[in-house]
């Protein structure tokens, strides 16, 4: 199973490579990728350096161009795709039909992976992408249960990559406009969810208010750890109660189901977190490398080492993890 790791900077890229990534994915410094945050991502020079590093270490380089192109700036997406090909990316991860078509038509030898942002959750949708663009792999949205992943691995026309660890998107990726409903900008259109420029913090003595474009997403007492106001993780009111109406701040961790993902035939495990620090990437990649290697050597007697669990918990959002939608109880 391939361990696919995130890099939002050259230092994170190094951390991923040094700690055992099989492949590292990254994006360019513009709205063509779904982690378009200030100070993140790669210009031409950094991308070249990353490539050199990847080649030295025998690690694959994937480039995410996974937002949806608009008419006005279509050339940006074309140029990003052409540059990724020119650079020699081992795969381009794309979601938009326009980008996929551009690569399939102009660079037919280029390996294409379907991004999670394409929101393909079933064999019918995957067949569409296979027929049109000859995609080699698809990254599955974090909405399928483990039995559904297993069934899809059986019927899928392409190999599958699933999310193993990181932030938990509670909505089907690529089909969530919550962010643009509050701010005008969404992952699909500008490559960012709950963009930082709309975030404001208000210190009210005993309380800290977190707002997104003016809307109160959460309010923390002194005893609580304040989290970034990703809007689906806010505390709101419904039916007279105040609670995390959509989702608690928590991270996805699938280490417990590693054996089943492997026997299902899942080809790659993805670590989320291009917006994370090099230290975070290094730590998470190192633990997952150990877990995968340990599993491959002891397939019949795999157990999750408590040390790995605690090392991952240290860096997890809200210091808690869940198997998410893979487990029916969570749904």
């Amino acid at each position: 199973m391939e361990l696919v790791c995130p890099a939002g900077s050259l230092n994170a890229f190094k951390a991923a490579v040094e700690n055992g990534a099989d492949a590292v994915y990254m994006g360019f410094k513009d709205e063509t990728n779904a982690r378009h945050f200030a100070g993140l991502n790669f210009n031409d020079k950094a991308a070249q350096k990353a490539l050199t590093l990847a080649r030295e270490k025998g690690v694959k380089l994937f480039i995410a161009i996974n937002t949806f192109a608009n008419s006005e700036n279509w050339s940006k997406w074309q140029q990003a795709a052409d540059y990724a090909v020119e650079l020699g990316a081992d795969a381009i991860i794309a979601a938009d039909n326009a980008v996929l078509e551009h690569v399939a038509k102009n660079h037919p030898q280029q390996n294409l992976h379907l991004s999670v942002q394409a929101s393909a959750t079933n064999a019918g949708a995957l067949s569409f992408y296979k027929r049109h663009f000859n995609i080699k792999r698809a990254v599955l949205p974090r909405v399928l249960s483990l039995p559904q992943v297993e069934a899809l691995a059986d019927s899928s026309p392409v190999e599958l990559e699933v999310f193993a660890f990181g932030s938990l998107c509670v909505m089907a990726e690529g089909r969530c406009y919550l962010s643009s409903y509050l701010t005008g900008e969404s992952p699909n259109t500008v490559g960012a969810c709950s963009p930082a420029k709309y975030v404001s913090w208000e210190n009210k003595g005993d309380e800290l208010n977190a707002r997104l474009n003016g809307a109160l997403i959460d309010c923390y007492s002194k005893e609580e750890n304040a989290a970034y106001p990703t809007l689906c993780k806010g505390r709101f009111k419904a039916l007279g109660k105040q609670f995390n109406v959509l989702e608690e701040p928590t991270s996805l961790n699938t280490m417990d189901i590693l054996p089943r993902l492997h026997s299902a035939g899942v080809k790659a495990l993805k670590i989320e977190g291009r917006q994370r620090s090099p230290a975070y990437v290094g730590q998470v990649v190192k633990v997952w490398r150990q877990a995968i290697d340990h599993y491959m050597a002891n397939q019949d007697a795999f157990t999750v080492d408590e040390k790995w669990r605690s090392q991952l918990l240290e860096v997890s959002e809200g210091s808690q993890t869940t198997i998410g939608a893979y487990e029916r109880d969570w749904q």
Binding site: R142, V143, L144, S145, V170, M171, A172, R175, C176, Y177, L178, Y181, C232, A238, L239, K241, V245, L246, E247, A325, R328, D329, W330, Q331
Partner: peptide
Amino acid sequence: YLPLALSARCFTARAVDRPKD
């Protein structure tokens, strides 16, 4: 009402403290 998002999780069930199943 604008259809903004779809999830594996049922938020109506969650609001009334029931598991989706």
